[in-house]
């Protein structure tokens, strides 16, 4: 890759705020990240962290709703936020496409799967219905649906959960997009089907070279598929970096909590799981200073009351690794050594 590799996607200080009766919900509040062509970014976070809202903001799906979106989203150098809707529509489903968590509700119940894929194709290509349907059948075959010629005429309810998600992927890839956004694509699926879908996404990425943003709460999925990770908490990134960096050198307390609260098949059984005290913060009145401070177990290691008063900035800890925390690097290193997750790094 050339030195001046242009970012495929650049999100800069993105804010998505929803006015409600109780006040302004700051679902996404100052999110910045970028993505290179052909790479996979995993966005992880718990419910309400703003990860799904982010993905919809990229496609401009909040347009026409009361949501207030500000900041900058540049796709291949084009600013998306103030792009006329006509031009944005040319990108949607063509250069940037999306797959959703629940393929049953994301597919129209009254149209055959083939028609829905064909529609995605015809919106961006002037071809006949028949040609588009042939293309749909081709795509179904590509994503591994047996008897594609027959199934292209079937309706979503006649598909199994895994087949539906395959069909969604076929629809998303029908125009050979440069960016695929997958919002919890395997959450509704069984683990063996999840494995099939993840393998399929990896295989198709190799073939199509699309960049992928995968949004998930499952760190295992991220470990499997992502090149880079972005950990979201209360509407912004608290840590981001290359997948190995974030998993083996996690650099702030929320990520520590996430990684060590997961029971692992490989780790010794019976010990207590680490937990994160408290519950997710209000997005209407987020905590002052560091948004994680009310739940942070390591606040005592920071001198003074910086955690409560000053929002920490995303600071580079390594070449490809940034975290949002007031802890001194030395203190972080000491905590990491104590945590069981880091033990596996030692073995490596």
């Amino acid at each position: 890759m050339s030195e001046q590799a242009r970012h495929l996607l650049e999100v800069d200080d993105l804010e998505v705020h929803f006015p409600t009766a109780d006040g302004l919900v700051r679902a996404v509040d100052g999110l910045t990240f970028s993505l290179e062509p052909g790479r996979t970014l995993g966005i992880v976070g718990e419910s309400g962290s703003g990860k799904s809202v982010t993905s919809q903001a990229i496609l401009g799906l909040h347009r026409g709703t009361p949501a207030k979106v500000s900041g900058r989203i540049r796709f291949d150098g084009v600013e998306l936020l103030d792009l006329p809707i006509k031009d944005l529509r040319r990108l949607r489903g063509n250069d940037i496409s999306m797959i959703f968590q629940d393929p049953l509700s994301a597919l129209h119940p009254y149209y055959s799967v083939g028609k829905q894929i064909a529609e995605a194709y015809r919106v961006h290509h002037s071809v006949s219905r028949r040609q588009a349907l042939a293309r749909a059948e081709e795509m179904l075959e590509l994503v591994g649906i047996p008897n594609a010629g027959r199934r292209v005429h079937e309706y979503p309810h006649q598909f199994s959960g895994g087949m539906r998600q395959r069909a969604m992927i076929a629809m998303a890839l029908v125009n050979d997009p440069r960016l695929l956004i997958a919002d919890e694509p395997t959450t509704a699926l069984d683990v063996t089907v999840q494995a099939q879908i993840l393998e399929l996404m990896k295989k198709l990425q190799r073939e199509f070279g699309s960049a992928i943003i995968i949004i998930t709460h499952d760190l295992g999925v991220v470990a499997d598929i992502a090149d880079d990770v972005l950990v979201m908490y209360a509407g912004h990134a608290v840590e981001q970096g290359a997948v190995n960096e974030v998993f083996y050198q996690p650099d702030m307390p929320y990520t520590w909590g996430l990684l060590s609260s997961m029971p692992r098949i490989g780790s010794p059984r019976g010990q207590r799981l680490a937990t994160i005290a408290g519950s997710p913060p209000s997005l209407i009145r987020p905590p002052s200073g560091c948004r994680f401070h009310p739940r942070c177990a390591y606040r005592g290691l920071v001198e003074g009351d910086a955690c409560v008063t000053t929002p920490p900035r995303l600071v580079a800890g390594g070449a490809d690794h940034r975290a949002r925390c007031h802890l001194e690097p030395g203190a972080r290193e000491r905590v990491r050594l104590q945590l069981s997750t880091i033990d596996s790094v030692g073995e490596r």
Partner: peptide, 11 residues
Amino acid sequence: AAPLPDPVQQR
């Protein structure tokens, strides 16, 4: 099929 939250092992 259950993905391990450990990139090196998982891959």
